[in-house]
Amino acid sequence: MQKKLIVSAAPYLHNHAATTQRIMLSVVIALLPTAAAAVWFFGGNALMLIVVAVVSAVAAEYIWQKLTHKPVTVSDMSAVVTGLLLAFNLPANAPWWLAAVGSFLAIILIKQLFGGLGQNFMNPALAARAILMLSWTGLMAANVLPHAGQWAAPVALDAVSVATPLTHGATGFTLWQLFYGDVPGMIGETCKITLLLGGVFLLVFRVIDWRIPVSFIATVAVAYFIKTGTLYSMESGAQNVLYQLLSGGLIIGAVFMATDYVTSPITGIGKLIMGVGCGVLLFVIREFSSYPEGCSFAILFMNVLTPLIDRFTGSKPFGFEKQENPAKEAKA
């Protein structure tokens, strides 16, 4: 039960290496079934991506902290979590260097430059994924058909020939396929069974709070119920709530990314705002933008608004009222 305390505020985190380690370790444990599913569905290349991403994330953190003469904190496992989540957000046919570049960006540009663990304002894995997507759109297209149980590297398929579950007009996937993960997609987002299992594990051990995932998913459900009017249907393709909930990165995003302590609001009401905001944005981007899936951008946008939400929901982290360092003020 003492873990309940930890969930409340980011500023506590970075002085408690041991606590951080315990939290991060439980997140890694919650992610392991999904890693296994990724390898099962997408073969050896998926395993390679996971290893490269995790190793480069840890290496980036270690090298950076050595170079800047900071205490080395790789043992807190946070870099492992970042590497895992980043790998889960890559398509199965991505080249190895994409995983390495992504991990370096996540750890150095997004996390360490802003002061390291607990101080970044964006989820490192997600922001890195977005940067990769904006840079190498073709390589980041999740258009590889899974081939359950085969070790061979997946074949890169023509972008046009394979419709992902969220391509407009796609009908080729059943709800059951979407649920157990036999669909094209980023390697870690397809298997909803293991993701939900991990989510339940984290909820039970109170590593994450229920508010963000529940309000996030509920908002998307309501939006699609208004749009389609159908809760679920075995035949009618993508136009029902359940199909949309099980498609794309919604589940992994709601359970593992939006709940990041550092980049989500502190108070309960703030968390609900975050969840609803993510849901609305996901719906808008999925339906109207040029990207088929909006989960990462929706969460990133709410990350940007998080400091503002924290202010308006009345939670002031320690020292908030204090004047800034006058020297800093004068400089700019």
């Binding site: 540009l109 940067i131 904006l134 840079s135 190498w136 759109t137 390589l139």
Partner: peptide, 15 residues
């Protein structure tokens, strides 16, 4: 070399 297209987009300018 695979060009990093984000450098030409707005975020690339800032960063």
């Amino acid at each position: 070399f695979q060009p990093m297209a984000i450098a030409l987009r707005p975020p690339g300018g800032f960063i």
